[in-house]
């Protein structure tokens, strides 16, 4: 499989991976907060605010973990 060995494509793959990681955690955090707000507790905007903040933290954590794991060449 030549393309994945190429440093250009390896870097591209890493960049794409980390980008989606940030986005996905934000979606989950905000989504959980929104569900708590609208269906479970009815706590105004605060569930979503807290959810988004936690989601951002989780996204950064995921991205950090992913970058740590990437094999060094």
């Amino acid at each position: 499989m030549p393309p994945t060995q190429d440093p250009f494509y390896a870097g591209l793959g890493q960049a794409v991976r980390i980008g989606t990681e940030l986005l996905a955690a934000l979606i989950v955090g905000g989504g959980l907060g929104w569900v708590t707000d609208t269906y479970l507790l009815g706590t105004g905007p605060w569930g979503m605010v807290v959810g988004l903040i936690l989601g951002a933290a989780a996204g950064v954590r995921n991205a950090y973990r992913m970058a740590q794991r990437w094999p060094q060449r």
Binding site: A24, R61, N62
Partner: peptide, 21 residues
């Protein structure tokens, strides 16, 4: 909570990444 969210984000990031690209 942060770890819970980062766990739940795994399947979503896996699905969205391939689909979006």
């Amino acid at each position: 909570p942060i770890e819970l969210i980062s766990q739940l984000a795994r399947p979503i990031s896996l699905a969205v990444r391939l689909f979006a690209n």
